[in-house]
Design a binder for these strands. Sequence first.
RNA 1: GGCGCGGUACCCAAGUGGUAAGGGAACUGUCUGCAAAACAGUCAUUCGGCGGUUCAAAUCCGCCCCGCGCCUCCA
Length: 480
Amino acid sequence: MALKVYNDLSSLLEEFIPINPQKVKMYVCGITPYDETHLGHARAYVAFDVIRRYLEYIGYEVDYVQNFTDIDDKIIKKSEIQNPKSENKTIQEKCKEITEKHIDSYFDVMDQLNIKRATVYPKATEHIKEMVNWIRGLVKNGYAYIVDSDVYFEVSKFKGYGKLSKRRLKEMKSGARVGIDSRKKEPLDFVLWKGAKEGEPSWDSPWGKGRPGWHIECSVMSEKYLGEQFDIHGGGLDLIFPHHENEIAQTEALTNKIPWVKYWLHNGFVNINSQKMSKSLGNFFSMKDILAKYPAMVIRLFLLMTHYHSPINFSNEQLDETKAAYDRIIKTVQDIDFLIEKVGEPENDVERKVTEDELAVFNDKFKSAMDDNFNTAAAISVIFEFIHFINEHIKNSKIDYISLKKYKALLFELCGILGLLLVNEKTQEIDAEDIEKLISERDQARKIKEFALADEIRKMLLARGIILEDTAYGTKWRKV
RNA sequence: GGCGCGGUACCCAAGUGGUAAGGGAACUGUCUGCAAAACAGUCAUUCGGCGGUUCAAAUCCGCCCCGCGCCUCCA
């Protein structure tokens, strides 16, 4: 089965055929680094990380570009807040200080979530020259007009306007919420270049000192790193309008290469109590806070248990449930490792129960799910079906070294495609020797039927967060 | 006002024409000195409501009810 993706441009599920049969080029809108990385960011970049990983898994080379919008009103505003430490710095330096700090913490969060680094992370401020050239081109070919030291894109000149967001110009003109700016010819026209006010960071341009508007950077930087046309453009659902619509307009107006982007993919929001997470509602969760309470892989699993295009409702209860689900996977890995050690080398094998065909069933089902527009929720269900299969076989003592190794390899392969690491981080911080010692003391007690003492030891270990399990192969332990 | 998304068990969530995946919770049983885990079984005759199309509908069509998002910065 071939990979199919839901294209927001056509509103259809389409077969994925990249422009170059070996190489996929994708651009995902990055963050404006002026504040903490939040759950919504995590959702978006986990989603596109899995898309990227799956494309690589099925054999493509992937060029993945993600920008940083490191110049913007919110950053400037933040830089104006009094900070004694940066008293003597220029506004430009202050902005850089803010963005660098947030980019660092962004990468820290992304690393914890096991998100692979993009091929390149271009910054808007490092591409001003290219943007100025681009805007100059739009002025020259009549799509942009100059008012004082601002430059605007004239939306009505671009006949495809609205094709991504499925809006018609006429309808939007009558829309109540479009802000009126008398300087613009039409309310929907958007700014390509903003003339600088006193004290704002600025760069030279043919129209005077100023800075680029929001949308232009993505067109310019994607063109620079991926070429005039490429395969996938991604981002949050809220970017469809106006951001992505404007990007299409200014890009296709300049290059006349249509379509600019073949597949548009957007991720759904994170909701709190069925409402969009937002600062104004005060229902905002920073990743720093969540990571203090839950392992990163639990968050990753939680985000992937809902399809990327659907909204996802966040709550601590949901995360607790996901923790239990994740522990089920981890426990199976630990059980396999425990048995591999106990069962020993292949010469001891009595029977080999698992066959390649049996495993292929799970492999195929998993791939079919992923081929269907990256249906991670369905793919995860296959992982749990596989875990059930493994436990069933372990239970029936139909275990042998080769099978166990194969189970483990497939489990890691499937989880790996989803970027799910199967490590119990906490185990590494524990004094294993001490625990083993107590376990053998308990075993002695059990042998002479001193169950009170045995239970006392078990209780003691539980207080330290260690759970004991007695099996036919001896006692196992694990962290809560 | 315009455009769009969704309503599947106690909770979460897959499923776009062939008779309801998966996870969590709960209950029963097996195993165990007791546990834990695992396994076995139970948990939606039904998919917001009402009509229609069809041999067949959660899936297609119509109407209605409810929730949400975008149209302003946003992942």
